[in-house]
Design a protein around this nucleic acid. Structure first.
Lengths: 260, 260
DNA sequence: CCAAAAGTGTTAAGTGTACACCCATGC
DNA sequence: GCATGGGTGTACACTTAACACTTTTGG
């Protein structure tokens, strides 16, 4: 939750990055049966923003997205998927209320130039990531005052088109659920079948039949049942599972279902 | 097949469009049981390019894609779908062999500036379109010498990453086939069930069972059987069908299959 | 021993696949 | 009448959905 200690030169932001294009991240986490998304609080103390940033002139989109994800979460090698490019002429990368930035950046002699650059039109490429909630240490940046998880069903005021970016991300995630395995980076290493089911139910926003869910999941052959059970809880102890890394990766490539 | 008669000022290309971002179009057509794609021949008389272009500063991505599609095909209000953003640092919008352009643009005093602009790094957003082959009048532009259909299984030499853009477009198209209706802009207004099947087989690259295909298609409830049959052909005359515009549009929205 | 959660089983309905059969048309 | 393409029907396998039953555990 502390400021980045690297000093950012506004001049180099303009010089080193591609103009007109940015990346925005929908970082999903799962905690206490709620689907959460990571948001940054703006300096106006009212509105929130999706984590994101710019693409260095010699950097691929994927590399940029991974770098930006790492900056906000400290996590690396995470499932990260490009899902849509948003290009409404009215959309902006940052809050249009530039005075908030001016105040903050007054000391930098490139502030004015930077503000003009950053307040211009940006086309943003959306990526979504699925991360393990407990492993994330949210970090905000110099343009924001806080980085926090928000329940997907209880979002605060968002700038620009970020609300609609989140909606598209969620819609894509729900679609992917049908033919791609999900959970590897969203759940702890070991988990129970009911926990996996809660995840699915949360993403889909509806309840599923316990028995059919179990059978379906097992039929995908990406789960490995461990000899131990979850202790401590009340009632019957559930088995623990983990994903079989190899078959999981293969299922990511070739899909869970046969299509046509 | 004739040159565009509007004079393009190179200065205005730079001034009116967003830098760093472009659009490329994979325009698919279906003719004589072959899936075709529209390509432009470069002035080197060797390599080919996907149709594409830039995004005006006040234009949405969709509007730009539609405008560019219209320029090459003369068609409007066509199914046009964004499918991926390509951002390899090495990719370029046009052929790196700038001398070919220099020669051509020698008369324009902004040529040098334009070449520098256009040869820089571009992130391109891929759209694919499905069009009715016979309705298209391919038109090339001032940077190319020809606009022609090419069989998807017999592609010529393509510049930059255009080969891989086509492959991704085709892969996406095959995926979409599973939960979206396809054919409205790819087939003539009236068509037979076997013709529709050929289209599916061509896109998928494999043969399907005639009888099961028919049942499946009819179960989607997007087809309307016409009272007339296709005359003239040998053997038994097949029924003619057309898409029911309303249910087709609805299926585009909500998908053909129930997922989860 | 009862309530609640988890594991296993059963069955009916729906969907997909592979075929057999019939009809229309041109030679 | 026969080869060929097109339309319809059916049997079977497999998947999905709905629900019953058993097991474990804390109180």
């Amino acid at each position: 939750m502390k400021e980045e200690n690297k000093i950012i030169s506004l001049k180099s932001v303009i010089e080193d990055n591609l103009p007109s294009v940015s990346i925005d991240l929908a970082i999903f986490g799962f905690h206490e049966n709620h689907l959460k998304i990571l948001l940054l609080k703006n300096k106006d103390k009212e509105s929130w923003t999706l984590p994101g940033g710019f693409i260095a002139k010699d950097e691929s989109l994927e590399a940029a997205a991974n770098r930006l994800l790492f900056r906000r979460t400290g996590l690396n090698e995470i499932f990260l998927q490009q899902f849509y490019a948003f290009g409404d002429p009215e959309r902006t990368r940052i809050n249009k209320r530039a005075e908030l930035l001016e105040e903050q950046l007054a000391k930098d002699k490139y502030a004015q130039e930077f503000i003009e650059w950053a307040l211009g039109r940006f086309i943003t490429i959306g990526f979504y990531a699925l991360v393990e909630f407990t492993k994330v240490e949210p970090k905000h940046d110099i343009f924001t005052i806080e980085c926090q998880w928000h329940d997907i069903h209880n979002l605060p005021l968002l700038i620009s088109d970020h609300q609609s970016i989140i909606e598209t991300a969620l819609k894509t995630l729900r679609q992917q659920l049908n033919y791609q395995p999900i959970g590897l980076n969203l759940l702890p290493h070991e988990f129970t079948m009911p926990e996996l089911q809660r995840l699915y139910e949360t993403i889909l926003g509806k309840s599923l039949d316990r028995r059919n869910f179990q059978r379906k999941m097992l039929s995908y052959k990406i789960l490995e049942r461990l000899p131990t059970k979850r202790k401590g809880g009340a009632y019957k102890a559930p088995y623990l599972y983990q994903f079989d890394k190899e078959s999981y990766e293969e299922a990511l490539q070739s899909g869970l279902k046969d299509l046509w």
